[in-house]
């Protein structure tokens, strides 16, 4: 049984960020930090991704919560963030730190797979592969997870795939 202790999430998050920063800079990795509401994203260059992931894993971030990809067609890039947290390290347990990389929006975008570092990323990488078409180099089993191949070919979560909308104002001429 775990009695609910009074735990201040923001201080835990701050501690986790410090820990992550130390781990990355001790390996000589260049990074930038972006703040979100309730988490921090650490953005690194593509070549530092695997090294950064290994460093963070050693620092105690033991599993991937979410592999978040956002498509920015105007800036011609995908923002790919592994949101991590820890189960086993009590000090930083639950604090969400993202390890991100920006992927250019080319014909066949690809990033190195982090499945070897975090097993929990395996299915999420498959998911990103089918929804965005980003290939993960070195993934052991890269197939579509949720979709049938014809649908996966549409890359449905990219912004240039538009779903039909039933507008209540459909057919009404726009004024002004």
């Amino acid at each position: 049984m775990l009695q609910a202790p009074s735990r201040d999430y923001s201080s835990v998050l701050g501690l986790a960020l410090e820990k992550a920063k130390n781990a990355l800079s001790s390996k000589g990795i260049v990074f930038s930090v972006e703040e979100g509401k309730g988490f921090y994203d650490i953005i690194v260059e593509r070549e530092y991704l695997v090294a950064g992931a290994t460093a963070l894993k050693e620092a105690g971030f033991d599993h991937v919560v979410s592999l978040t990809v956002t498509d920015y067609p105007k800036e011609k890039k995908f923002r790919l963030v592994y949101h991590l947290t820890s189960y086993l390290d009590y000090e930083i347990a639950g604090a969400i730190i993202g390890l991100g990389v920006e992927v250019p929006r080319s014909d066949r975008p690809s990033v190195p797979s982090l499945t070897q570092v975090w097993r929990s990323a395996e299915f999420q990488e498959r998911e990103v592969y089918e929804f965005f078409g980003i290939e993960f180099e070195g993934h052991p089993d890269l197939r579509p997870l949720l979709l049938t191949p014809p649908v996966a070919e549409l890359r449905p979560l990219r912004k240039d795939f538009v779903v039909r909308e039933e507008n209540i104002y459909e057919g009404v001429p726009k004024s002004g």
């Binding site: 979709l147 449905p156 795939f161 779903v163 039909r164 039933e166």
Partner: peptide
């Protein structure tokens, strides 16, 4: 409703 005509997911791609 979804089995009638799509329901809440009328414009889903899947």
């Amino acid at each position: 409703a979804c089995a009638l005509d799509g329901g809440l997911f009328y414009n889903s791609y899947n």
